[in-house]
Design a protein around this nucleic acid. Structure first.
Lengths: 223, 223
DNA sequence: GATTATATGTTAAAGTTTTCACAGAATTGA
DNA sequence: TCAATTCTGTGAAAACTTTAACATATAATC
């Protein structure tokens, strides 16, 4: 059957946020939540919460709300968190290593099973219990192991080549930390973490706020 | 006068992307570009490009297009890249250290001037030429130095306290790498990098694609 | 057990963002 | 120099997203 109707990307982007808040509630021992409670915590309207869930079916009970643990599981299933997934990291620079050491992903079912670099000083050393291998072994590695996601943390000049390589090896997901826009066939998914973009956006708002504050100070002085 | 009319956030989010592509063009020695060329490179329509710029005025020339370097400067000015900005990093774990070592930000005018942690093994050691200081010195540091942005890379349990502290010290921008939703007064800007959220979103699409592929394979076999 | 309060699922309206369409300015080429 | 082409700026339409509204189901209370 497949997907009945295309779920908007923007809704999918919110699922992990719901999941995060539901996990918090669960850990706090709260077993029941209404769309308006959840919305308030997340900073969105209750309508949006209900509308979002409505895309997938009905998880709640009128007059009661949602069972936290059940809803969390439902969203987890939609996101595929019930299944273990594997990642390789290509580029063992500062960022690549930090990600390899970041244990939080494992809890959600994502485990790093290989790290690759071209730097001969790095190749052969270990991160946690994973040996860093030379990039020219990626191909073989992917034939011997099922790899779901490739994390690209190489310098921008190599990004395209690395992406093309992992796509040719049948990897369906790319987590791109370079500032390069990757053009991929539509049977491959890309999620970008554009750090510089995010920082510049923040810079814009900071500028705005600082200017506003100065204006206000100037005004106060006038009076 | 201040902002005439509120520019949509979604437009602001695209400005760094324009900036990035214009920098690329400039580096490739291309001095002229049309909205449709730029749009094609970026994967958006020419209409959107023109509509976005229209929010700020008119930067182009009919029948010609845009001067790459001039447009780049205009967008840089809107983003405030003409001014130097300072950052402190709170939390010198793997991610915090990776960010401190990430030299790319400096090119865009963002420089890390302080790194803080509570781990006594880290305090006193150096990242590049910056000494890691104990968190209890943040307050003094911010009085002696103008800090524009605080980068929060502490464990999630400390996130709120750190945010409250830096807000109380007058910092107007928070770059939040924790999975905590920070509630801040509206004279403070927050940009979030939610790595887990991004990874889960990617996981959803990978699941979808893998399922689709399996379906197709099964179909092929049938025939 | 009946009544009141609560909160979902769902449709419709409002608001936002993207795309379309085109007049007219500037360039290009003959 | 003139005609043809290009391409912006801009208003309007279309598409998408969020919010509002409400019938109805369930829980809580008396």
């Amino acid at each position: 059957m497949g997907q009945q109707k295309k779920i908007p990307d923007i809704v999918i982007k919110r699922l992990p946020i719901y999941y995060r808040f539901l996990t918090n509630l669960h850990q706090m021992g709260i077993s029941r939540v209404s769309s308006s409670d959840l919305g308030k915590k997340m900073g969105i309207t209750s309508s949006q919460v209900r509308q979002d869930f409505f895309n997938f079916g009905s998880f709640g009970l009128q007059g009661y709300g949602y069972d936290v643990e059940q809803l969390r599981q439902e969203i987890g299933n939609i996101l595929g968190l019930n299944k273990q997934r594997t990642m390789i990291i290509i580029g063992a620079g500062h960022l690549g290593q930090a990600l390899a050491r970041h244990s939080a992903f494992e809890k959600e079912g994502y485990s790093v099973i290989g790290v690759f670099d071209i730097n001969p000083h790095l190749v052969g050393t270990k991160i946690r219990d994973i040996e860093i291998m030379h990039v020219n072994r990626i191909s073989q590695f992917c034939k011997e192991n099922k790899v779901d996601i490739a994390v690209i943390t190489v310098p921008r000049t190599y990004a395209k080549d690395v992406a093309d390589l992992v796509i040719s090896l049948g990897i369906k997901g790319i987590w791109n930390f370079t500032s390069v826009k990757l053009s991929v066939p539509d049977n491959v998914a890309v999620e970008n973490i554009h750090l510089s973009d995010s920082l510049m956006t923040l810079g814009y708002y900071v500028k705005l706020l600082q200017e506003k504050e100065e204006e206000e100070k100037a005004k106060e002085k006038e009076e």
